[in-house]
Simulated assay, not measured.
Amino acid sequence: MNDAVHAGTAPAAVGRYPHARRVGELVFLSGIGPRDAATNAVPGNVTDGNGRLVAYDIERQCHAVFANVRAVLDASGARWEDLVDVTVYLTDIARDFTTYNAIWAQYFPDPEVAPCRTTLGIDALPTPIAIELKCVAHVPPTHAPGVA
């Protein structure tokens, strides 16, 4: 099985790619950001009169990105608990890592069952967001859509 996944409850992709691709028992999520699916707005972003980003709320963006990842997982037949690997991209790692790490612990309170994680500080993302997640999930056949 090699199926593209498009989640109606997640924000549209900003390019020509699916939200995820399922290959056998693995689901590979494209980079998922915190944009709101209904409005395309970035939670917590503050812009000036010229539309330039002047401030953002990393806490709001973290919660939003986790909600968007969950939406894509749901659409693929995966569950939150099926995540096995997450790559995190932060545009200001010095400022935002501590907050992000604390919020991660809320979503994954037991490090023994949390997915593996790599966190990178980068200069920018394609849209005015401060965080993006790239995830891989393992979906046992019993979790697959249409399997009782």
Score class of each variant (00 low, 15 high):
residue 61 Q to K: 10
residue 25 E to G: 03
residue 41 A to S: 13
residue 29 L to A: 05
residue 28 F to K: 08
residue 123 D to Q: 15
residue 132 E to Q: 14
residue 15 G to R: 05
residue 81 E to P: 00
residue 54 V to A: 12
residue 75 A to S: 04
residue 111 P to H: 06
residue 133 L to M: 13
residue 95 R to Q: 13
residue 46 V to E: 12
residue 33 G to Q: 04
residue 107 Y to H: 14
residue 127 T to R: 09
residue 131 I to P: 04
residue 103 I to W: 07
residue 118 T to Y: 11
residue 113 V to T: 15
residue 107 Y to I: 10
residue 60 R to K: 15
residue 146 G to N: 12
residue 29 L to T: 06
residue 56 Y to I: 01
residue 131 I to E: 11
residue 94 A to P: 15
residue 40 N to Y: 09
residue 4 A to V: 11
residue 101 N to S: 15
residue 68 N to A: 05
residue 48 D to N: 15
residue 90 L to A: 14
residue 116 C to V: 07
residue 15 G to A: 09
residue 148 A to R: 14
residue 11 P to Q: 02
residue 49 G to Q: 08
residue 146 G to M: 08
residue 11 P to K: 02
residue 33 G to E: 10
residue 147 V to Q: 11
residue 78 A to Q: 06
residue 9 T to S: 14
residue 47 T to H: 07
residue 65 V to E: 01
residue 57 D to A: 11
residue 114 A to Q: 14
residue 30 S to I: 11
residue 90 L to D: 07
residue 143 H to K: 01
residue 90 L to T: 07
residue 127 T to F: 13
residue 62 C to V: 15
residue 45 N to L: 11
residue 88 V to A: 10
residue 59 E to T: 15
residue 13 A to M: 06
residue 31 G to Y: 13
residue 40 N to L: 10
residue 136 V to L: 07
residue 4 A to T: 07
residue 14 V to D: 14
residue 88 V to H: 08
residue 137 A to W: 06
residue 27 V to M: 08
residue 110 D to C: 03
residue 102 A to T: 08
residue 56 Y to C: 04
residue 105 A to E: 14
residue 135 C to P: 09
residue 88 V to L: 11
residue 40 N to V: 02
residue 84 V to C: 08
residue 38 A to F: 00
residue 43 P to N: 04
residue 146 G to Q: 07
residue 41 A to K: 12
residue 107 Y to F: 14
residue 51 G to K: 05
